[in-house]
């Protein structure tokens, strides 16, 4: 798998270079937040970038929230916010 591919966020395509995490691909595409906090409704995206802070939790293919900065992107992955 060395060809660039796409994932989607709420139906919008996002390009991915093989080996990138979903968080890296979204950030590179200028998409800097993909969830809001429970109480203050504040937008959140990447912060620590290495799986420590849990700010980047994301819903992919309807699964329970995972850390976008650790989750390798796979062709056709569907992110919902």
């Amino acid at each position: 798998m060395t060809e660039p591919f796409q994932i989607t966020i709420d139906g919008h395509p996002v390009p991915v270079t093989p080996g990138q995490t979903i968080g890296a691909a979204l950030h590179a595409a200028g998409r800097r937040s993909w969830r809001t906090t429970r109480f203050g409704g504040r937008p959140r995206g990447l912060f620590c970038g290495i799986g420590v802070c849990f700010d980047c939790l994301i819903t992919v293919n309807g699964r329970p929230p995972e850390r976008a900065c650790l989750l390798p992107a796979r062709p056709g992955d569907e992110v919902t916010t």
Binding site: T17, G19, Q20, T21, A24, A25, H27, A28, R32, S33, R42, P43, R44, G45, L46, F47, C48, G49, I50, V52, C53, D55, C69
Partner: peptide, 30 residues
């Protein structure tokens, strides 16, 4: 992992840890 200090607005998207910025660059070319 990075040690960070809080300050007003530190949870805005676009604020990253220094290591996080480095990890994006080294690991993803971003």
């Amino acid at each position: 992992h990075d040690r960070v200090l809080p300050f007003p607005g530190w949870d805005l998207p676009g604020v990253l840890t220094a290591g996080g910025a480095q990890a994006l660059l080294k690991g993803h070319g971003v």
